[in-house]
């Protein structure tokens, strides 16, 4: 099967890669670019673990073909902290005890990031809406919601 060339920008770095059409974005990030912080929990868009930001929108990277990301700007969890400083959401997740096994964490943080940036005024219910496509088996979500709320309210 012919490979396609694509150019994309991941975490502010430019990449040129060759992929089969069927390669999904999550597999490209993990297997080709070594960005294993993007976790693959189901492969079918039903758990949210593989969430990344694509052109500023949170998407399940298992629901995107890599070829579709030609020319796209992608942010993965590895691209959030800058100059050794955690993103406020990362810091809040750490401080509030919102992380246990950690497998859902990158997806949770990135969807929250997208949601907070687009919705300046949020109610309690909105924090839940933000992460309702992200499953977590460890935390019962309580401390995750608390962490997002903390950042949203600028505490």
């Amino acid at each position: 099967m012919m490979k396609h060339r694509l150019n994309l920008r991941v975490n502010k770095q430019d990449f040129e890669v060759f992929v089969k059409p069927k390669t999904t974005l999550v597999d490209l990030l993990r297997d080709e670019l070594g960005l294993t912080g993007t976790n693959k929990g189901c492969g079918t868009g039903e758990c949210g673990a593989c969430t990344v930001l694509m052109n500023g929108n949170a998407v399940n990277s298992c629901l995107v073909l890599a070829v579709e990301a030609d020319g796209a700007e992608i942010t993965t969890i590895e691209g959030l902290a800058s100059e050794g400083r955690l993103d406020p959401l990362q810091q809040a997740f750490v401080d509030e005890g919102a992380i246990q096994c950690g497998f859902c964490t990158p997806g949770m943080i990135l969807v929250a990031k997208d949601f907070l940036e687009k919705n300046p005024q949020l109610r309690e219910e909105d924090y839940k809406t933000a992460i309702s496509g992200n499953l977590c088996r460890c935390t019962g979500y309580v401390k995750i919601v608390k962490a997002i709320k903390k950042v949203a309210e600028g505490e």
């Binding site: 070594g34 693959k40 590895e78 990362q90 750490v94 005890g97 950690g102």
Partner: peptide, 23 residues
Amino acid sequence: RSVPKLDAVEKATGKAVYPQDTN
């Protein structure tokens, strides 16, 4: 004392290595 989990930063930054991340 509510000490944050020692491995939380690794997990929050995507650096934690799960078996499926092995290469």
